[in-house]
């Protein structure tokens, strides 16, 4: 009997701990499928962040390093500089990448570090229970913006892809979403291209993945997917910001 669907080799056979309806699992799977398809598991090193995915080193079959909050791009820099033949990816959330780790991501991109960052943006802090993230939308209610995010009080959301695409060292920048099948396929294409950009030694690559957090948004998984589509995409338009025409 032909096998048409199976667990990618790059993922371990371990149940993930994420909440029902959370899309981190999908993003993990997409990364693992890409690693399998590119045949790079044996030379890949992943960096785990602080946040809900702090222990995703347990799920991936490749070598993994757990990094301090926000420091994944710096840790990835160290790993890559020691073994430039390794394929190094950092997995980061919105608090990790766009708040506490802003300096690290900006400078890793500016240096053109040959690493790939998968940036999962769900507009909220998950693990610490639903506080405002730098990407929290205007008027979005969180535990630290109980009356909604007001720009005059809480500042404006940060559009990471737009920001990073101004840097010369960032050669591939794309925003995708995983709220439906079509977008999941697009997300995988982007992740694959980001890895290939690194394999071709072209520079820094990042894919921002719009993602859900049903638990902290207070929505059912299905409602959460709709909320992402209707609210996040207008604020964070999907598409390529840089490196669209790169041949890899």
């Amino acid at each position: 009997m032909a096998v048409v669907f199976k667990r990618p080799h790059a993922l371990k056979d371990i149940p993930m701990h994420y909440c029902p309806g959370c899309t981190h699992g999908i993003v993990h799977r997409l990364i693992a499928e890409v690693i399998d398809e590119l045949g790079i598991e044996g030379k890949t090193v992943g960096i785990s962040p602080v946040g809900c995915t702090y222990n995703n080193y347990e799920y991936f079959n490749c070598d993994m390093v757990q990094a301090a909050h926000g420091r994944a791009p710096a840790v990835a820099t160290g790993v890559k500089r020691v073994n430039p033949d390794n394929i190094v990816f950092a997995y980061q959330g919105d608090g990790d990448l766009a708040a506490i780790g802003t300096a690290e991501i900006v400078h890793a991109a500016a240096r053109g570090e040959k690493i790939t960052v998968i940036f999962v943006n769900n507009a909220i802090y998950g693990m610490t229970s639903g506080q405002m993230a730098p990407t929290t939308l205007v008027n979005q209610v969180t535990t630290t913006t109980p009356f909604g995010r007001k720009p005059e009080i809480h500042g404006h959301p940060i559009n990471v892809c737009e920001l990073l695409s101004t840097l010369k060292g960032a050669v591939y920048v794309e925003r995708v979403s995983v709220h439906d099948i079509k977008n999941i396929f697009n997300a995988k294409k982007a992740i694959k291209k980001a890895f290939k950009v690194q394999m071709a030694n072209l520079g820094f690559s990042i894919v921002e993945v719009l993602s859900t957090c049903p638990t902290n948004w207070g929505l059912s998984p299905v409602e959460a997917l709709k909320w992402l589509r209707d609210n996040m995409i207008p604020a964070y338009p999907l598409g390529n910001f840089k490196g669209k025409d790169l041949e890899v």
Partner: peptide, 12 residues
């Protein structure tokens, strides 16, 4: 950043 680069390099 420097110490975390060191962290990565030592890990490798």
């Amino acid at each position: 950043a420097a110490i975390n680069m060191v962290y990565g390099a030592a890990s490798a």
